[in-house]
C-alpha cells in the first residue's frame, strides 16, 4: 500500500455540469508522483474537460487535491496559430526566461533554424514538440498532455511518446496523457483511466486485456467503482 504522500493528486467524487448537462459524473482517482496516467475514452467522454477542471478552469463539485508545490505544464489539443505571424523563438519566449538550446534539445529538435520559423509553417510533429518545450520551460513537476500527437502522422507518433517517456524519467515529471492509441498507452503509461462521463476502467495499463480494451473504452459505458483497489 502506498503512503499517502506518494500521491501528487487525489480526485474524489468530481462532478462537472456544463449548461445543465453532466459532463463528468462522480470521478475518483489518485495519481502517484512520477507516474504516467493515460486517459482514454470516446469523443465527448469528458477527457479534455477533466484536464480543464484539473487546471481549475471549470467550476466543479467534489475535491481535487494537488500536493503542495505542484507546478503544471499544459499542452492543449488545439491551438490557433495558423494565422499568427509569430516565430518559434517568440513563442518560446512568452512567459519565463528561456534557454533555447535546452528547450529544443529536451524535445529532440536539433536544428536550431526552427527558432526563426513561423509557427504556422511547422510540421505537425514539430509544432507538438514546440508546445511541449513551452510547457516544460517553467520546469513543471506535472505535465498535462491533451492528445500530444494531434496532427502527427503515424510514423512520428512513437518517437514523441519515446521522448515524453525520457522527459518523464529525467525530469521526474508526473504525466497525464489523453490519447486514443491503446497500443502506445500500454507501452508507455503506468496507469489507465478510461472515461465515458464516468470511469469505465481504472487500473494498471497492462491489466486491460487487449481484446476487451476496445469494448471497455469505446463500448456502452459501464461505470466502475474506483479507489477500492488503488492503481
Amino acid at each position: 500500500m502506498a503512503e499517502s504522500n506518494d500521491y501528487i493528486l487525489k480526485v474524489s467524487n468530481l462532478t462537472v455540469k456544463l449548461q445543465n448537462q453532466v459532463i463528468l459524473d462522480n470521478i475518483s482517482f489518485n495519481v502517484k508522483k512520477g507516474t504516467t496516467l493515460a486517459i482514454l475514452g470516446p469523443n465527448g467522454a469528458g477527457k479534455s474537460v477533466l484536464f480543464r477542471t484539473l487546471l481549475n478552469l471549470i467550476p466543479h463539485t467534489g475535491t481535487i487535491e494537488w500536493t503542495e508545490k505542484v507546478k503544471i505544464g499544459y499542452v492543449p489539443q488545439n491551438v490557433a496559430i495558423s494565422d499568427v505571424p509569430m516565430s518559434v523563438k517568440e513563442f518560446l519566449s512568452m512567459g519565463d526566461k528561456v534557454d533555447f538550446e535546452r528547450a529544443l534539445s529536451m524535445v529532440r529538435l536539433n536544428d536550431k533554424s526552427v527558432l526563426n520559423k513561423r509557427l504556422g509553417v511547422l510540421s505537425g510533429g514539430q509544432l507538438r514538440r514546440i508546445l511541449i518545450a513551452w510547457a516544460l520551460n517553467d520546469k513543471p513537476n506535472v505535465l498535462l498532455l491533451d492528445e500530444p500527437t494531434t496532427g502527427v502522422d503515424m510514423d512520428s507518433e512513437e518517437p514523441i511518446y519515446l521522448m515524453l517517456n525520457d522527459i518523464k524519467k529525467t525530469q521526474k515529471i508526473t504525466t497525464f496523457l489523453i490519447t486514443h492509441n491503446i497500443h502506445l498507452v500500454q507501452e508507455y503509461a503506468d496507469n489507465l483511466l478510461a472515461l465515458n462521463k464516468c470511469v469505465t476502467f481504472y487500473g494498471r495499463s497492462e491489466e486491460i486485456a487487449k481484446p476487451s480494451a476496445q469494448r471497455i473504452i469505446y463500448g456502452e459505458p459501464v461505470c466502475v467503482e474506483t479507489l477500492k483497489g488503488e492503481a
Binding site: L57, I72, Y74
Partner: peptide, 17 residues
C-alpha cells in the same frame, strides 16, 4: 500584447498561466 496573443493562441493556456 504578448498576453493577448497567447490568449488568442489558446485561451486555456493563457488562463492556466
Amino acid at each position: 500584447y504578448s498576453k493577448l496573443v497567447l490568449a488568442m493562441i489558446s485561451e486555456d493556456l493563457a488562463i492556466s498561466k
